Simulated assay, not measured.
Amino acid sequence: MRALLVVNPKATTTSERSRDVLVRALRSQVELTVEYTLKRGHATTLARKAAESGVDVVVTLGGDGTINEAVNGIMTADPGLASGTASPAFRLPALAVVPGGSTNVFARALGLPRDWVEGTGVILDGLRSGRHRVIGLGRADDRYFTFTAGLGLDAAVTRRVEQARRRGRTSTPALYLRSLVGQVLSGEDRKTPPLSIERPGEEPETGLGTVIIQNTAPWTYVGDRPINPNPQASFDRGLDVLALRSLGVASTTRTVTQMTSRRADPRGRNVLRMHDQVEFTVVAARPQSFQLDGDYLGERQKVHFLSVPRALRVIC
């Protein structure tokens, strides 16, 4: 069995020594190639080339951004160069995830251990036994995502956090909270919510201040606490949506409090929720912040979302 290990050298929870231990452990089970990412988007290129060369498994050591890039590389590989059945999940390489980021939402949603040593043990056992899970993905225009996408408030908060990290700040729950408060208090888009959701055969939902899309639950974590805008979201169903009709301070605070409660079930006149959606388009009256799997991707005015069922094999 051939495998590629894609390493983000900036992974926050591992050291060079621990990476060497991981490499030796994987080489005990597979014919392993190791590649280090050099810049944003590099993991996509590495995973795509590996898939087209016939690699059986792509292993990532990094955070959710590295995983997202690797998934996009796998899913956009030339199918003419990959062997197997017609189903993409079995025609293309499987994915194995060693948690190395600060939050590791995707790995935790799969039930993988947070510790990279324990996570490596799960992967090795899965490789020996052939154990895997087939999951659905989301797609935003031509880019895949594993657990979340968003336009508006949550993406603007992601932008603020990334700006703070470039200034040397550490990614912590406190940093996200301060970024959220700062974005809400800035008043952007509060008076005239710019977003709409359009679905085939349905009347559009208009006047929305932010839109969160989930491919699984939870949406993210604050430390050990899961944040659950759409608790029923699942890798085995379509996409779930939570949108806010207003970004007023009081109403937004109430919804955020509901999302962070132990029995999360956000409701109220300000909340729009959609479950198990196959396809829809988010349209903005003016450019809005856009994020996929926790990475800020700039501003957009229109994004088409699609649920892609049974798209990817994951060792877990």
Rank of each mutant, 00 (worst) to 15 (best):
E198M: 07
G223I: 14
L208S: 04
E198D: 12
E203A: 08
G207Q: 03
V211R: 07
Q214A: 09
Y221T: 11
V211D: 03
T210L: 13
E198Q: 13
P193K: 05
S196M: 09
T192W: 04
G223Q: 14
L195Q: 05
A217L: 03
W219I: 01
P204S: 06
G209S: 14
P200T: 01
T192E: 09
I213D: 01
P194E: 01
G209R: 11
W219Y: 15
P193I: 04
E205H: 14
A217P: 12
G223V: 13
G207M: 01
P200M: 00
G207C: 02
I197D: 00
G207F: 04
G201M: 01
V222Y: 15
I212M: 14
T220R: 06
R199T: 01
P204D: 04
V211G: 04
I213P: 07
E202T: 01
E202P: 00
I213L: 10
I213M: 10
E202M: 03
E202C: 06
R199S: 02
T210R: 06
W219M: 07
I212V: 12
E203S: 11
V211P: 09
P194D: 02
L195A: 04
K191I: 13
I213A: 03
T206C: 09
A217R: 05
S196C: 05
G207R: 04
R199W: 00
G201D: 02
E205A: 12
T210W: 10
G201C: 00
E205Y: 15
I212Y: 10
G207S: 04
Q214R: 09
G209D: 12
Q214W: 03
I212F: 15
E205P: 03
R199H: 00
I212R: 12
E198C: 13
G207K: 05
T210D: 10
T206N: 09
Q214H: 14
Q214M: 13
T216M: 07
R199N: 02
E202W: 03
G207T: 05
V211E: 08
A217G: 13
G209A: 14
E203N: 09
T216V: 05
V222M: 15
V211F: 13
I197W: 01
A217Q: 04
P193Y: 07
T210F: 13
T192S: 08
T220S: 15
I197K: 02
E198N: 12
V211L: 07
I213G: 03
T220L: 12
L208T: 01
K191H: 14
T206E: 07
S196L: 08
P194A: 01
L208E: 05
V211Q: 09
Q214I: 04
I213R: 10
I213S: 03
E203Y: 03
P193N: 13
Y221C: 09
T220K: 11
Q214C: 09
N215I: 00
E205V: 12
E202A: 02
P194L: 03
L195K: 05
P218R: 05
T206S: 09
T206W: 06
P204E: 07
Y221F: 14
Q214T: 13
L208Y: 07
A217N: 07
I197N: 00
P200E: 00
T192P: 09
L195D: 02
T192H: 11
P193W: 02
I213E: 02
E205T: 11
L208K: 07
Y221W: 15
K191R: 15
I213T: 08
S196F: 02
E198R: 14
L195T: 05
P204I: 08
W219E: 01
R199Q: 02
R199F: 02
I197F: 00
N215Q: 03
T192I: 06
S196W: 12
I212G: 07
A217Y: 04
